[in-house]
Design a protein around this nucleic acid. Structure first.
Lengths: 140, 140
DNA sequence: ATATTTGTCTATAGATTTAGTAGATTTTCA
DNA sequence: TGAAAATCTACTAAATCTATAGACAAATAT
């Protein structure tokens, strides 16, 4: 399961994409629109900023804005950024690999093989879809 | 990520399948063979028993044995039994559905739609593979 | 300059889940 | 009866999740 944090991140990014781009939107506006606790959203938007996805401006008229184009933000990237590994087992994760510590030979392990299949199927979908795609469907 | 508990469950079932079927195997034997903490394995095997996957016999010469054929135990069933939902969002789960509480109309929600795709791809693989399949590959 | 608005940083806290442990009890077999 | 094994009850420690509080820094308007 994706964490609440990650779900909030996706919703916030879609909201920012659907708004006029290049304009600043405050944390409170997004929080109210999407019913996200705003102190929690604060942390999330900061993470997205530190990852280079969003930019921000302080003071009056400030807020957050998209720094990357929505079509360049893949869903898989948001998940990895907020939640970490996408794979169902540590030993099949591309970005957060760890040995499972249970099988003797990972290359011959049937469990490993099966969950690599699952990983690849999941990755195929989540890396071919962007925040832009989701926002477009949303609008129509 | 699958929990350790679920990984242990899969390994234990494969171990039981690879052993001579119909014979009793003690918790301690499985725990030692697969390096699983045996008090933890105790809980796991009991869950599998209560779900009708394993049978048990108490006393001397007792232990656990397969009650279902390994080819009838789908990996998806083990995961659902031990970890619960397989889906990445509550609103796309078939067996553990809950509303996400974030979108107005689930049927029009693009996020919902995307993660249903992921769910279906995952389910396709995990319901077409059984403990028997994993044990067979293991052996060869 | 100063007040206001807005993001940033530090710190904390409650709830839940994960991963496991301890010890008494029951059943079965020899 | 005694030993071996599962079963049951009841914990616990640590991590993670989901937040919240409050001080601080920067930008803007007046």
């Amino acid at each position: 399961m994706l964490s609440k944090k990650c779900q909030y991140a996706i919703h916030a990014l879609i909201y920012l994409t659907e708004k006029h781009e290049k304009e600043c939107t405050t944390i409170v506006e997004i929080a109210d629109a999407k019913s996200i606790p705003h102190k929690f959203l604060e942390v999330i938007l900061l993470d997205l900023k530190n990852a280079g996805v969003l930019g921000s401006k302080k003071g009056k008229g400030g807020g957050y804005y998209m720094i990357k184009h929505a079509d360049q933000i893949r869903i898989i990237d948001v998940i990895r950024l907020i939640d970490g590994a996408v794979a169902m087992l540590p030993c099949v994760s591309l970005n957060f690999y760890e040995s499972c510590g249970l099988c003797e030979n990972e290359k011959k392990c049937s469990i490993n093989k099966l969950f690599k299949e699952v990983r690849d199927a999941t990755l195929k979908i989540l890396s071919n879809n962007t925040i832009g795609d989701l926002a477009r469907i949303h609008r129509s």
